[in-house]
Every structure is written in C-alpha cells, then in structure tokens.
Computed example of a mutant assay.
Amino acid sequence: MFQVDLIEKCKKNDRKAQLKLYNQYCNAMYCVSMRFLKNNDDAMDVTQESFIKAFRKLDQYKEEVTFGAWLKRIVINSCIDFLKAKHQNHLSLDESYVYISEDNDWNVEESISIDEIKKAIEMLPEKYKYVVMLYLIEGYDHSEISQILNIQETTSRTQLMRGKNQLKKLLIAEKNGTRH
C-alpha cells in the first residue's frame, strides 16, 4: 500500500490504516522525543499524544513535506510544550536587540566522540540547549526554530551562538579532564 493511500484511509478514520502508519513511525518519533525529554515514560507519553494530535489534524497535512517530517514537527512541538509546562517559571530574556554574526564552524577535535558532544549539549542551559538541538541535530534553520520556540529569529541566532560557545568550553574542559 502506498503512503498516500494509507494517509487517505487514515483521514477516513480507518483504524487499521492508523495502526499501520503508527507502527511505521512510532520508533523514530520516540527517538526524537527521547532526545528532548530524556525520560522513557515522558517520551512515550508525548509520542502517543503526538500521534493523537496528528490523526486529529491529518486533514491539515498537504504533502508539501513528507509525512515523517510533518509528524516530526508535531512531536518536537509537543516535547517543547511538555518542557514549557514543566518549567513554567522559566524567565526568558529578550535578546532580539543583539546583532549576531554568522559563525558556521562546528568543527571539534577528532578525539571528541558523538556521545561526549551529546552529553555536553545536555549540560547547556535550556534556552541554548533547545536551539542547539533543533539546529544541529534536527536540522532546522533559524526561521523554523523561531516558529517552533515562539522566539524571534535574532533570538534564535543569539542563543545558538552563545550555546555553541558554551558547548565549545564544555568540550575543551572534557578534553582536558577538568570537568567532573
């Protein structure tokens, strides 16, 4: 069965088609949730809720992007909403007045592993961590990040630059063995 046919059946509330589509994407979407939430139960809950949202809004899917990309956006937004609800007292500074120069140098020393980079990203303050994750790991640009996080593009650029600088410091400390 072609993806388009499967989606059309899902739009008509065909439960078997919905289960097939769910089984096709559930593991990948769970991995996306885990990257943000770091908790198995929370990731499973958010993934399930994301599929429910997706099936309810399936009529809004216009095939301008792949279904997986559309669903991934729902999952990421759900993760961010979950984290925001968990941290409602988080104060965000307006950084839109700052001019940022583009610095696309993400090179790190070859001796630093992917796992060390992921651990260092987890140590970043939340306002930097999510922008870095969306940009570096998920591949979104500043326009998309600004929409997802409901911030201005200049704020996204500022937080990415600052997050990248802190990430480099963390990785240097890791390499030199000064971090505990």
Rank of each mutant, 00 (worst) to 15 (best):
N39F: 02
C31K: 14
C31M: 12
Q18L: 02
N40W: 00
K20C: 03
Q24E: 11
R35A: 14
Q24P: 00
Y30Q: 04
R35Q: 14
Y22N: 01
D42S: 15
A28H: 08
C26R: 13
S33A: 15
D42A: 15
L21V: 11
Y30M: 13
D41A: 11
M44W: 01
N27K: 14
S33N: 05
N23H: 11
F36Y: 15
A28R: 11
A43N: 03
C26M: 03
Q18D: 02
D41P: 00
C31P: 00
Q24K: 14
Q24A: 05
Y30W: 12
M34V: 09
Y25G: 00
F36H: 04
Y30L: 15
N27S: 12
D42Y: 15
L19G: 01
A43Q: 04
A17P: 00
L37N: 07
F36D: 01
F36L: 13
R15P: 03
M34F: 14
Y25V: 02
K38Y: 15
C26H: 14
L37P: 01
M34N: 10
N23W: 05
M34R: 13
R35D: 13
V32H: 04
Y22K: 02
K16I: 10
R15V: 11
K16F: 07
K38H: 15
F36S: 04
S33F: 09
L19Y: 05
N27T: 10
D14R: 07
S33P: 06
A17M: 08
D42M: 10
N23L: 10
R35L: 08
K20D: 07
L37F: 11
C31D: 10
S33R: 05
K16H: 02
L19H: 02
Y30F: 15
K38I: 01
Q24R: 12
N27F: 05
K16W: 01
D42R: 07
Y22P: 00
F36G: 03
D41Q: 12
L21I: 11
M44Y: 05
